[in-house]
């Protein structure tokens, strides 16, 4: 347990460089290694860790219970194939011992010993992958995937497999413009952040890859905090406050988001990889404990409210700053 815990801390993408947080279009080139107080992260696009099999089993369970988490408008099939054929080689490179990919033209054979998967399919042939390329991709990588189409001078969230949403619904948002998806987020519009982000993304050239981080907080190691299941997890935001186990239950949730211009389809592949670290785990790095306590205390009320932190923020700050 100690080893697993420290491995999780060591590769955690702690996102705060200063004692306050505001929305920024904080993008940087992908594959840039970052050194943190506890270790580091970010050398690759995909980050396969000790939770790999557990998280993919959880995704399968969420999808089985609610197939609307996987959305693909009909014109996005090429983009889904493109995402799959871009990211399987990436996964093969990240796990050379446990996975392998053999290509014979469009005939691909994929083996993944981490999950016991072995599949042969023909790129572009829908019948060869009955669940569809997007669903198959989602069964192999921990990241949630959103595919953005580009047309009419805008980006459109026209496909996605999102089982680990931080308080939003892919099923409701599918087909929206990028700006509309972000409609409810406070402050970002006044600051022009979303507009700038969209223009930046629309200018990405084939194969270009960038990344950014985002964060919120979650009670327990619950990856599925989608709007759909709000009725199941909403109360925990209140219940955790009086719980002596608060530092173990309350987690800093960090999303490492990759933005990749897919070459064949011209779609933007938006990957969201969710990392959870409990306050107690976080506090094993004194610098992080101090920094996160300061960020949380300073965060403006509207941003705390949008992120769903209002109920437990004071209790979290108290615990973090008492250390």
């Amino acid at each position: 347990m100690t080893t697993a815990l420290s491995a999780r801390v060591a590769r955690f993408p702690f996102p705060f460089a200063t004692d306050s947080y505001r929305y920024l279009t904080n993008v940087e080139p992908a594959r840039t290694p970052v050194t943190t107080a506890a270790g580091g992260w970010g050398a690759g696009v995909l980050d396969v860790d000790d939770d790999y099999a557990v998280e993919l089993a959880e995704r399968a369970a969420v999808l089985a219970a609610d197939p609307t988490r996987c959305q693909e408008l009909p014109h996005m099939r090429v983009a889904s194939w493109d995402a799959l054929t871009t990211l399987l080689p990436e996964l093969a490179a990240a796990c050379p011992g446990e996975t392998s990919l053999e290509r014979d033209g469009d005939r691909w054979t994929w083996r993944n010993d981490l999950l016991g998967t072995a599949r042969t399919f023909t790129v572009g042939d829908d019948d060869s992958l009955p669940e569809g390329p997007l669903a198959f991709l989602g069964s192999q990588i921990q990241d949630d995937v959103v595919l953005l189409d580009q047309r009419e001078g805008a980006l459109w969230a026209d496909a996605g497999l999102v089982t680990f949403a931080a308080d939003w619904s892919m099923g409701f948002d599918v087909g929206m413009r990028f700006l509309e998806v972000h409609g409810p987020v406070p402050r970002v519009h006044e600051a022009g952040v979303v507009q700038r982000a969209e223009r930046f993304l629309m200018r990405l050239q084939p194969g270009e890859e960038y990344r950014r981080t985002n964060w919120t907080m979650t009670v327990d190691r619950r990856l599925d905090t989608s709007t759909e299941t709000y009725a199941e997890w909403g109360r925990d935001r209140r219940l955790v406050v009086g719980d002596p186990a608060l530092p173990d239950r309350l987690h800093l949730r960090v999303e490492v988001q990759h933005l990749i211009r897919l070459g064949v389809s011209n779609a933007i592949c938006f990957l969201v990889r969710t990392h959870l670290l409990s306050l107690r785990e976080l506090a094993t790095v004194p610098e992080w404990r101090q920094r996160f306590g300061a960020v949380l205390a300073e965060l403006p009320d509207d941003m705390a409210d949008y992120k769903g932190l209002t109920r437990f923020r004071a209790a979290a700050v108290d615990w973090l700053t008492a250390g």
């Binding site: 014109h75 996005m76 090429v78 983009a79 189409d149 580009q150 047309r151 050239q205 084939p206 194969g207 070459g263 389809s265 011209n266 779609a267």
Partner: peptide
């Protein structure tokens, strides 16, 4: 590297 400015519209 290839640059795209004349892609087909997927819809």
């Amino acid at each position: 590297r290839p640059r795209s400015a004349f892609a087909p519209v997927s819809t």
